[in-house]
């Protein structure tokens, strides 16, 4: 592959992933409203276009047209920086996710992944951890008690749950022996999904993913019943839109990560029996991955409209007293099982 074609291929991949991420996040807002409505015996938005399919466009237009308000007592630079960081870090995470196997065009391999970092998991965690700065800075710069409380809650919550999340991933790394997401996805061909080998780790990871994306029942940073709007109380117009949008992008990326880590990524059992062409397999892999992602996005929303919000002390108890000991126990059990089944080399 020449440098020129490499640049073109990478450029196309980056643009495609970026566009798909934004598109999925846009329609997640629509899906959220529809699913919320259906779970509550309502119809939901159905005025903009057939079945309200153009509702996200209407929302976007509204967001852009709204008056932009920056409180005079706020720290203006940080006030603008907050949503920018939230949006930036949300968009960065899609880089290492393997969206499918490689396409073979003219004897050249084109992996359907922007870049295969050999420390993909570490990169992912690093970027996700940066996401909290957007909320924290936004909440602090607003110079508002509710925003500040929301920001504090967000930072403590995300730091607490990152520990349990990281520990649950250590057990996964022990079994897979790799930090590269492509490698982890490739290992799960057939029915060798990691959820079979790491059920407890999977559960902990999903719970922590809810907390990391600030979704109900862990949406204490916004917590509209007690904190007005939490960290985005003072935000308006597209800055508010960025915060909300970042949450949906995070949800999409989290669903992609959960699918890749534990639910086989782009793999689908038995598909190799009928389809042999590698290009078709790659395309089907993308489809399967997106089916899984859609399910998890639905799952995120389903949980949101079922469970009530945790109290703050309950959240901390769950994080520090239950999830972290459980994830350490998971590591120990994984180690013992690997030692006695002789899968340690």
């Amino acid at each position: 592959m020449t440098l020129q074609s490499l640049l073109i291929y990478k450029g196309i991949m980056v643009l495609a992933v970026f566009a798909i991420t934004l598109l999925v996040a846009t329609y997640s807002t629509y899906a959220e409203r529809k699913i919320a409505a259906f779970l509550q015996d309502r119809i939901g938005p159905d005025r903009a276009g057939p079945f309200g399919i153009l509702q996200p466009l209407a929302d976007a237009v509204k967001m852009f047209m709204k008056e932009e308000m920056i409180p005079s007592v706020s720290n203006k630079a940080l006030f603008i920086l907050g949503p920018s960081i939230a949006m930036l870090t949300a968009c960065l995470t899609g880089v290492v996710i393997p969206w499918g196997k490689s396409l073979w065009i003219g004897g050249t391999e084109y992996p359907l992944q922007i870049t295969d970092l050999n420390i993909g998991i570490l990169y992912l965690f690093g970027v996700i951890s940066l996401g909290v700065y957007g909320i924290m800075i936004g909440g602090w710069a607003s110079n508002n008690k509710y925003s500040l409380l929301g920001g504090i809650r967000a930072s403590s919550q995300m730091i607490s749950y990152e520990v349990a999340m990281g520990l649950s991933i250590i057990a996964l790394v022990m079994t897979t022996g790799s930090l590269s997401l492509r490698e982890i996805a490739a290992q799960q061909s057939g029915w060798h999904w990691n959820v079979v080998y790491q059920p407890l780790g999977c559960l902990i990871f999903i719970i922590c993913a809810f907390a990391e994306t600030n979704r109900a029942p862990f949406d204490l940073p916004e917590c509209e019943t007690e904190l007005v709007g939490g960290y985005h109380t003072e935000y308006s117009s597209m800055k508010l839109g960025f915060f909300l949008f970042a949450e949906y992008i995070n949800m999409f990326i989290s669903s992609a990560v959960i699918s890749t880590f534990y639910f086989g990524g782009y793999n689908m059992p038995f598909i190799g029996r009928w389809v042999h062409d590698p290009n078709w397999l790659a395309v089907l892999g993308i489809v399967f991955l997106f089916v899984k992602i859609s399910f998890f996005i639905f799952f995120f929303m389903w949980v949101r409209w079922t469970l009530p919000r945790f109290r703050y002390d309950q959240l901390m108890n769950l994080g520090w007293k239950i999830l972290i000991p459980l994830s350490i126990l998971n590591i120990v059990i994984t180690g013992f099982v690997m030692y006695f089944t002789g899968s340690l080399n």
């Binding site: 699913i35 259906f38 779970l39 509550q40 015996d41 309502r42 119809i43 159905d46 389903w302 949980v303 409209w305 079922t306 469970l307």
Partner: peptide, 21 residues
């Protein structure tokens, strides 16, 4: 309990909506 709760909400997903447009 969470699982049974989610089943309850899911059963509402397919219910006939009483909305009058």
């Amino acid at each position: 309990a969470i699982f049974s709760g989610m089943m309850i909400t899911f059963s509402h997903f397919f219910r006939k909506k009483p909305t009058i447009k």
